[in-house]
């Protein structure tokens, strides 16, 4: 049956074969186009909304053809960007996010470089279970320890006087720990690709193992370290659940700050779309820089979606 089909195909005239091939090509490009349109619609709607006046969005009405929402703004305005810090202090939140994300990145890198080096270069008892525990921790969603963690902050404050709630430090500690498992596993595999002879040579030349890490391994693994750092940055930039409970007026991050545009009284969609653009840009830029590494990491391990 299959044979007969193949024979039938062979018997087709060259012209028909070419016609089929052209139709296939057209169908392929059409399918790709559909995928791209679906992917881009929310981006385009966000961009278009950010240039509309509040009046245009608020008075839009799909039941009235005159007022139906349009892709091209009726009156093009930059006011949403100019007044971005006015109704909601999104620029202040942006600064908070930058501080928290960079802090997370640095703390996470400091801890995961040491741990990753340990896993890549030493054999020790408990190594297997530790790696397993990293994989398990990574699976644990935040909601499962959110409540006791929140109460822990209350007690740390009570016992030591250190306030972690509504501080950059508390948030940085939290997010750094969240990104640790993936970062450690990634750095371990980056370090493992560096030939052992290089740091053994450094140790023969008088370096301690820790010295070899700082003088040899870290400089060689710089691209991998940058990728992991950016991963930690993006993770803390995007986190919502813990940020909504652990931040206050002074430390609110953009991920929760954006939600303030919609209140019970009014929905400021135009301002919100402009804020969305501003919040997305750093992530887009950084992700583009490390796309290759993250994709590799996704494939070999897994990153939280």
């Amino acid at each position: 049956m299959v044979r007969r089909r193949a024979a039938y195909q062979n018997s087709k005239s060259p012209r028909r074969v070419r016609a089929i091939r052209i139709i296939e090509r057209v169908a392929l490009y059409a399918a790709v186009l559909v995928v791209l349109v679906v992917v881009l619609i929310p981006y385009a709607w966000m961009l278009s909304g950010s240039f509309k006046t509040s009046l245009e969005i608020q008075s839009a009405d799909i039941t009235d053809p005159e007022l139906a929402p349009r892709w091209i703004p009726r009156t093009f305005t930059l006011d949403n960007y100019r007044n971005v810090n006015r109704t909601v202090r999104i620029l202040d939140y942006f600064v908070n996010s930058i501080i928290v994300s960079i802090g997370t990145m640095l703390l996470c890198l400091a801890l995961s470089i040491l741990a990753g080096y340990s896993l890549a270069r030493f054999e020790f008892k408990g190594k297997g279970p530790y790696v397993l525990s990293l994989l398990v921790t990574q699976m644990f969603p935040g909601i499962l320890f959110l409540i006791p963690y929140f109460i822990l902050f209350v007690y740390i404050n009570k016992w030591t006087g250190i306030q972690l709630k509504n501080t950059y430090g508390g948030l940085i500690l939290t997010y750094a720990s969240f990104s640790l498992p993936f970062s450690i596993l990634m750095l371990r595999s980056f370090f493992a690709t560096i030939p052992r002879e290089i740091d053994e040579q450094a140790q023969i030349d008088g370096c301690t193992p820790v010295g070899a890490l700082f003088r040899v391994i870290i400089p060689v693994a710089r691209p991998g370290i940058a990728a992991v750092g950016i991963y930690a940055f993006i993770m803390s930039w995007n986190e919502i659940l813990f940020a909504s409970l652990l931040t206050g007026r002074a430390t609110k991050t953009v991920a929760v700050g954006i939600l303030e545009y919609i209140t019970n009284q009014e929905a400021r969609w135009a301002g919100m779309m402009a804020a969305c653009i501003i919040v997305t840009i750093p992530v887009l830029v950084l992700f583009t820089l490390i796309q290759r590494h993250i994709v590799e990491g996704l494939v070999s391990g897994s990153v939280k979606g």
Binding site: V35, W45, I62, A255, M273, F287
Partner: peptide, 29 residues
């Protein structure tokens, strides 16, 4: 195209779902 299809994955959750909230509005969506 392989890079572009990642755009939804890259968009921060709060941004993506805010935009979808806008898209699903009854009268202006």
């Amino acid at each position: 195209v392989r890079g572009l299809v990642l755009l939804p994955y890259i968009m921060p959750d709060s941004v993506a779902y805010s935009v979808w909230r806008f898209i699903f509005q009854a009268r202006v969506g």
